[in-house]
Design a protein around this nucleic acid. Structure first.
Lengths: 247, 247
DNA sequence: CGCCGCATTGACGTTCGTCAAGTCTAGTGG
DNA sequence: CCACTAGACTTGACGAACGTCAATGCGGCG
């Protein structure tokens, strides 16, 4: 599959908002439900929202009212320290949910920026909470989404705390490829939607180091890189970089 | 207050298990409830469990059944990569809850080790889920606990991704002091319950760097350190290290 | 076509990791 | 009570990895 197809957001504005006929449903709402419950859950998706590339879906400090499920497009979330440093905390793609960090203080604590034109489902959180008191499957799903995010961040902490530059980048590329593959794209060919600087912020390295590390992977024949086009030539070698001490 | 008092775990084994008379309640279950609901919530705390220093409360891979609220004692949680590297993901003290990462896959994904003799409340998660369908305040509380953990980890990612050794240690010490202060201890005098190596794992630095960084803070007259006894002499200077670019 | 932002590459400096030696402390047993 | 020991901690010398500064290349967009 052409990696370019990643960006082909379907334009379905006229079709009824419905999880039941959404091709992302099994990713963002994998709940086994009766038809009646399904209809009720669709009420949660109160609206859709388009976000054009470069715009923010929400910003740090804004009142938290809803979670956002990505239908199409690609986002980064970033978290700022009081003195203005920025840490990209994640990259989100179709089927993934953003805004979970806003629950605790009733306002968002990070920024979500679209890295390509995107469309999201706006899911009113009070509504989710109400409904999940009645639909056990939805309740479980909410718990799991939150827990999954904790688990994901544990992985990032491990990466940031104990990996070298090359391992970090290898881990990052494999993770992206795996998630794209789960969405029906090639697992060896990908288009990076973010700049080197954003990759660097996420991986805790400077832009020059990101660039040099890419160049090293290319030299070693592990990947082909053309700016944001990446082709993984030797996935095994990439995986080997991921756990260098496992012998 | 003597920092030594941190370890004075009350021995109340004979007293009825009851959140209502637990001095940690406002930390771990800050929910405004009717007396009737309060009694029902106490059913959640099915039992207590003592863990002696060095033992694990749960391990990676074990089936997830319950969350654990710390009554007394001090824990670390650590997360291992496939090739055996370990990342300490957090240090938990009285009133804090562990095990949230286990929800998503029905089994724990990290280890929780007691760094001093401890007692925890075992809270059956199915029971929590059931009850939170009826008691809105509890449901909100569960959501907030999960979201708070995500927020906390965002902060650690920022630390690991963008801070220098000295900033990391300063941030770490201030965070510990603040949490101890919230529990009625001195905010300037603390006893580290963890080794330099565990601090290093948490902060993404080697043990020698941790040691050297402590020494630097001592040289600069910012803290006094006697092995695990730490006294903060100049909290402002420590805070200043925390955001060096804010000028 | 020309500009601007993104990316790459090189030279150099700093920070932190590595290796090694040595000190201190708490705990154990005589 | 003291000697002994193992583990925790500190300190120094050195080197590798990564950050910094600077110059240049390249593509996309107006």
């Amino acid at each position: 599959m052409d990696a370019r197809a990643q960006s082909s957001g379907l334009k379905l504005a006229h079709i009824k908002i419905a999880c039941s006929n959404c091709n992302m449903r099994e990713l963002c709402m994998p709940v086994d439900l009766s038809e009646a419950d399904m209809l009720r859950i669709e009420e949660v998706v109160s609206s859709r929202r388009k976000v054009i590339r470069g715009d923010s879906l929400f910003n740090n400090g804004e009142t938290f009212k809803a979670l956002f499920a990505i239908r199409t497009g690609f986002f980064k979330t970033s978290f700022a320290s009081p003195d203005g440093r920025e840490q990209v905390t994640g990259f989100q793609m179709a089927g993934e949910v953003m805004g979970l960090d806003g629950i605790v203080n009733d306002h968002h604590t990070c920024d979500a920026i679209a890295l390509e034109d995107a469309e999201v489902c706006v899911m009113n959180f009070d509504h989710i909470a109400t409904l999940s008191r009645e639909i056990t499957g939805l309740q479980r799903h909410v718990h799991k989404m939150l827990s999954r995010e904790i688990l994901r961040e544990n992985g990032v902490m491990l990466l940031l705390g104990s990996m070298r530059a090359e391992e970090r980048l290898a881990t990052f590329l494999l993770n992206l490829a795996q998630r794209l593959h789960a969405r029906g794209f090639s697992s060896s060919e990908l288009v990076l939607r973010m700049t080197r600087e954003e990759i660097g912020s996420y991986l805790g390295m400077k832009i020059e180091t990101v660039s040099r590390t890419f160049s090293k992977l290319v030299e070693d024949g592990i990947v082909e890189v053309h700016l944001r086009q990446v082709r993984i030539l030797d996935a095994d070698a990439l995986k080997a970089l991921t756990n260098p001490h496992s012998q």
